[in-house]
């Protein structure tokens, strides 16, 4: 009886160890993949609203033709 209990404990330990290892590996992969790139953040900061033709601009172009 005592021998059977010892066997089950060892199996549980091995199962638990392998499951824990897999979970740690998955967490590392997820963290690496979700880490934001500093270059992308910088380029976002520098991208603003630029030139767009408006009525105001068309009016300016018209006045230069005088």
């Amino acid at each position: 009886m005592t021998q059977t209990k010892t066997k089950l404990g060892r199996r549980n330990f091995i199962l638990a160890a392998s499951a824990g290892g897999a979970a740690t590996a998955a967490a590392i992969v997820a963290r690496t993949a979700s880490k934001p790139k500093p270059v992308a953040a910088d380029s976002d900061k520098r991208s603003g609203k630029g030139y767009q033709v408006s009525e105001h601009i068309n009016n300016y172009y018209r006045t230069t033709k005088v």
Binding site: Y51, Q52, V53, S54, I57
Partner: peptide, 24 residues
Amino acid sequence: NRLAEGKLPACAEMCSTKALLGGD
């Protein structure tokens, strides 16, 4: 930031003789 407002540089827009041109 006049470009973001749909305008062009103030210097070019207010040039009285339209000597200074600015834009596309």
